[in-house]
C-alpha cells in the first residue's frame, strides 16, 4: 500500500505560447509511514508535484496509483482520495474564512459528512495536536499571529484524519522557534500515528533532522532520491542547482580537508558535535 507515480509529466497552459513543462517524467514510490522531505530551488516544481498526489492537478501524461488503484480511472472517487491525502498549501493561512478558529477546523470533517459530535471531536484533537492554546479556540482566525494561523490551517487538514499528509513549506516566514515547534509536532504526529508525511522545504537543516528520505527536485526532474546522509554527500552538486547542505556538512568537510580525521556524514548538529568530540 503506497503511492506510486509512473512517468508523470505536467505542462501548464498546454497548447498556448505560455506553455511550461514543469514536471518531467517523474517516477516515484512512497511507501506507507515514510517521512519524506522534498527540497528544490524556487520554481523547480515542488508545489506542482504535491498537487498531483490528491488529484488537484491532472498529469498531462503518466499515471498515479494510490493503494494500487489508478486515480485517473473514470470511476475513481476523488473526494475520498482528497480525504485520505491531506494537502496543506503554501501560506495556508490565506484560506481561513470562518468566524472562529474551531468552526474553521470543523470545515474539513463536516465536508466528509461526519456527524456533529465526531466533527467536533476531530477538530478538538487536531487543534491539540498542532499545539494551539485552548483559549484561542473561539477567537477569530484573523486576529491570530502568522504562526498561529498556520497551525490552525494545518489542523484544518489534520481534522480530516488523512493517511498521507503533505505540507508545502509549512515553515516559510516563521521565526526559528515557531519553525522548530511546528516541525517537532509534525515529527511527533508521524511517530504516533504512522502517517506518511511529505514535507516541502527550502531549509536543509529542517529536513536533515527529521526525515527518512530526501527528494531533490531540479527543473522538474528528480535529481536525488536517497537518505539525507547520502544526499548531503553530494553537497557540491547541490550547490550547482542552487541548494546547499546543512552547515555542519561544510564544517566537517573543512576539518577533514585540514587533516583532522572526522567522519563527514553527520547531518545534525548533535551528530557533528559527537563526531568532533571523538577527536579529543
Amino acid at each position: 500500500m503506497a503511492i506510486l507515480l509512473d512517468h508523470v509529466n505536467y505542462i501548464y497552459n498546454e497548447d498556448t505560447p505560455m506553455a511550461a513543462h514543469v514536471l518531467k517524467d517523474i517516477c516515484l514510490e512512497i511507501p506507507d509511514g515514510q517521512f519524506v522531505g522534498v527540497i528544490g530551488h524556487t520554481g523547480s516544481g515542488k508545489s506542482t508535484l504535491m498537487q498531483h498526489f490528491n488529484g488537484l492537478l491532472r498529469a498531462t501524461s503518466g499515471h498515479i496509483y494510490y493503494n494500487g488503484e489508478d486515480i485517473y480511472k473514470d470511476d475513481y472517487d476523488m473526494k475520498k482520495l482528497r480525504s485520505k491525502v491531506g494537502l496543506v498549501f503554501q501560506y495556508p493561512e490565506h484560506q481561513l474564512f470562518e468566524i472562529d478558529v474551531f468552526s474553521d477546523v470543523c470545515f474539513g470533517p463536516r465536508n466528509l459528512g461526519l456527524d456533529k459530535r465526531e466533527t467536533e471531536l476531530r477538530a478538538y484533537d487536531a487543534l491539540r495536536r498542532v499545539g494551539l492554546e485552548d483559549e484561542l479556540f473561539y477567537q477569530s482566525p484573523f486576529d491570530l499571529s502568522g504562526g498561529q494561523k498556520r497551525r490552525v490551517a494545518i489542523a484544518g487538514v489534520l481534522a480530516m484524519k488523512p493517511d498521507v499528509l503533505i505540507l508545502d513549506e509549512p515553515t516559510a516566514g516563521l521565526d526559528p522557534k515557531g519553525r522548530d515547534e511546528i516541525l517537532q509536532q509534525v515529527k511527533k504526529l508521524q511517530t504516533e500515528t504512522g502517517m506518511t508525511i511529505l514535507l516541502v522545504s527550502h531549509s536543509m537543516e529542517d529536513v536533515a533532522e527529521y526525515v527518512d528520505r530526501i527528494l531533490v527536485m531540479n527543473r522538474g526532474s528528480v535529481l536525488f532520491d536517497d537518505t539525507p546522509r547520502n544526499v548531503f554527500a553530494h553537497y557540491r552538486e547541490l550547490e550547482e542547482v542552487g541548494l546547499a547542505a546543512p552547515q555542519v556538512t561544510y564544517i566537517l568537510n573543512e576539518l577533514r580537508n585540514n587533516g583532522l580525521d572526522v567522519d563527514t556524514s553527520a547531518i545534525t548538529t548533535k551528530e557533528a558535535a559527537d563526531e568532533i568530540m571523538k577527536l579529543f
Binding site: L56, R82, H94, F97, F107, G108, V157
Partner: peptide, 27 residues
C-alpha cells in the same frame, strides 16, 4: 489557489442546487 485549498479540505463547488452552490462560495 483558494479554490484548490478548499477542495483539498473537501469543499464541493460543483454539485448541489443553486442555494447550496451559493453557500459553497463562502469559503
Amino acid at each position: 489557489r483558494i479554490m484548490k485549498a478548499q477542495i483539498a479540505r473537501g469543499a464541493d463547488f460543483e454539485s448541489g442546487n443553486l442555494f447550496k452552490r451559493a453557500k459553497a462560495m463562502v469559503p
